[in-house]
Write a protein that binds this DNA or RNA. Structure first.
Lengths: 210, 210
DNA sequence: GCAAAAATTAACCAAACGGTTAAACCTTAT
DNA sequence: ATAAGGTTTAACCGTTTGGTTAATTTTTGC
């Protein structure tokens, strides 16, 4: 048996970590079904049996990787959403950090969405983190600003979904957008870099009263 | 050999059609990798060999189904986007029809996006329709309205991506949104029904000059 | 230094998968 | 009625896949 501590993380060059990294790559690109254990082993540069030595089964390995991916996505959102700060600044920061996280890990949203759709039970039971972002404070802030007449009336839940959609979807649907807009990869990249500013401007304009 | 006409569609209760429908269900839920020929056969209530009798291989069956799914999605968008009408009306109609199509076929976007990511070559070579929507007219209209001072300045490509994102993403990420917003399925359904009005209002507010 | 433990490998296994085949069944035109 | 051709099935085949085993190599504790 491998002596694996649950608290300490293994060294970056350890076999266990190499497996995890390779699995991370393959799973996030191909999902649970598309990923093959042999490919993960090859990419980690080790024998296939070692996968089962360190992580008992494909399912277990998948759960580990998926949980790590989820956590990265969730913690980034939560931090901004729950912190105390003026609404406009919060919106600005939320869009900035959200697009930042996604653009550095473009596979995350598609991975989450695909896997939820294919295996909802497993996802909600064993992969989804317990400490989800609580948008309650954000909703309260929006309603307070509306009451004070500082922003146009809007249902806060829809506002949040508007923002998340505009931040996430262009990265999820990047290839489709590129075709629709007739942009080559290079042009598409600059286009996506502009989004932080464009989304922020758009949201604030839509909230401006009158 | 089955005498299959390429022009006439087979009767709804024909074996060929039953296979197609079953394949449509399974492929759209599980994608190419996740779908199993046996499951398609079972759901169609026929022997597995019949799949190969009517559609030569899994790949061919997949291509048929995928093309049908794509066409439905694409043609709906194109119609509104290319038709001549005032910009505000076009935006209203675009959002309405877009959300309409998606909400009646919630699996379409995720299917397209997933499959593009896994097999870009196959997708662009054999599945994507040739006659894609041309957003050129829409872009011209937006720029004309900006020049006339009737809407706030905005890059038309970003506007289009904003709109599409807000229309599509809530359906794609529905389970995730439900968790984040703490909504049960019933509540989520009413929430999604509100989106047509909410998105329209939001976009028009963001475009209002001043 | 050496034995015990951990790490790694090659070879193998059973199940699942896409696909094939040959025979049986059904329809229909004469 | 019957032969021909289209339709459907059960059984089978080769390959791939996740997983196991037994043996080998490397590391570690004393």
């Amino acid at each position: 048996m491998a002596k694996r501590s649950t608290t300490t993380e293994p060294a970056i060059d350890s076999t266990e970590q190499k497996i995890f990294d390779a699995a991370h790559e393959v799973f996030s690109q191909k999902g649970m079904d598309g990923a093959k254990m042999q490919e993960i082993a090859d990419r980690a540069g080790i024998n296939k049996a070692l996968l089962h030595y360190y992580y008992r089964s494909k399912e277990k390995l998948y759960e580990m990787v998926a949980r790590a991916i989820l956590n990265k996505a969730v913690s980034a959102v939560r931090e901004v959403l729950e912190k105390e700060m003026p609404l406009e600044e919060k919106i600005r920061r939320f869009i900035e950090t959200y697009i930042g996280v996604i653009s550095r890990n473009t596979f995350i949203p598609l991975f989450i969405i695909s896997e939820i759709n294919k295996h909802p039970e497993r996802f909600f039971a064993t992969i989804l983190p317990q400490d989800l972002p609580k948008p309650h404070l954000f909703f309260q802030q929006v309603e307070a600003e509306i009451a004070a007449g500082r922003i146009r009336p809007i249902k806060p839940q829809h506002l949040l979904v508007h923002i998340i959609s505009m931040c996430v979807f262009p990265f999820v649907g990047k290839p489709m957008m590129a075709v629709l807009l007739g942009m080559r990869p290079a042009k598409m990249q600059t286009f996506l870099k502009e989004r932080t500013a464009e989304v922020t401007q758009f949201v604030l304009a839509a909230l401006r009263p009158q």
